[in-house]
Design a protein around this nucleic acid. Sequence first.
DNA 1: ACCTGAACACCGTTCAAGT
DNA 2: ACCTGAACACCGTTCAAGT
Lengths: 223, 223
Amino acid sequence: MATRTRHTDRRGDALSKERIVEAAVDLLDEAGESGLTFRVLSAQLKTGPGAIYWHVANKSELLVAATDAVLAGVLAADPAGATPENAIREVALGVFDAIDAHPWIGTQLARVASQSAALRIFERLGRQIQALGVPETAHFDAASALLNYILGVAGQNAANARSQDPGTTRLDVLGAESELWASLDPAEFPFTRTVAPQLRDHDDREQFLAGVDLILGGVTGLR
Amino acid sequence: MATRTRHTDRRGDALSKERIVEAAVDLLDEAGESGLTFRVLSAQLKTGPGAIYWHVANKSELLVAATDAVLAGVLAADPAGATPENAIREVALGVFDAIDAHPWIGTQLARVASQSAALRIFERLGRQIQALGVPETAHFDAASALLNYILGVAGQNAANARSQDPGTTRLDVLGAESELWASLDPAEFPFTRTVAPQLRDHDDREQFLAGVDLILGGVTGLR
DNA sequence: ACCTGAACACCGTTCAAGT
DNA sequence: ACCTGAACACCGTTCAAGT
């Protein structure tokens, strides 16, 4: 009745896919996407780069596993929203906030089609779409539209995070971007210039939700 | 009154940013994103890798310029749609088709926030939103939602293209994916399984348009 | 079975030297 | 002003050799 398995955890530092993924997530969070290197990662795990390949096929698989690991937590619980609309907002915001906390997830989601993480988001969204009482023929398109919108925002937020100097705040970025928009050629960019002042004090999260609501509005309009 | 400039085009092969970008686009189209290398590119241009750096700051700038070059054509003409809705569909489909022809554009658009190409798409969309007759306060959110949706699809389509073996057709991919969906755990993926049969004979382009229409439906519902 | 770490085949980028 | 191409500082990945 020994509580420990055969010989793996005599010491707690035996290599495993979980430990590798965990270390990769830490590295990505601290050093960003360019900070994840098999050399740095293996040094952190006190081993050689080759050892990682015993547990993980390649870097791409490692990134997928790291994304899954973080999003698993977010998507574990069924959304508690009282209405399907609220449940969808909840799922969307969960992904949004996860990307806010771990920007590299955004890059990963935007890059890799039909990865298990994206599939799980799709499933969650679809179930709530089914509860919305719209024609069945519209379910697939509706869930797909929501997913693609979420993945689009994911990619852009990740890009924003990547281009930010460590010191700058979200407000600095918006201010600079707003000035850039205001300085565009009025003949070529009339709309963007009109909207520039709104950029400075808009809230990314609220605008993200507004987009979700526009899609929801379109879907419920089919009833 | 010589028609040729000082000494640059004595021969037509003098290096310039345009020629470099042109060669980069060709290389990206033929060999994919991983095929674009400063060594291969400079060999194609019959020069050394260092020469490129006289005209282009780095690889990232080259990719941005290549994306801009291709999308400039797509976004040059004002959309001819009779209604704002149709004009928006036209812009969206233009981007969609450009990505279909040059998948690497999708990756680029999904990766780089506020790049000039994305800004031009945003502007085009926004102008038509203004013509839609919805409250002004909604214009920014509406244009942003459309752009993010388009960029999300862009990223996924690029990812699909990247993961495809050169031989496989779109139908092969859909067939395989449909089977994968159908084989998922019914307890965990009820919605995705329900929708799996629709995947096999659905049309990416039509589903893309359906998503645009859902957002448009949400926006016009604000009137 | 699992780990080690040197070595391979690449990258993007720099820079002294040329014209 | 513009080009050349060797060299630098990295990568991901492999693999013979160890335990």
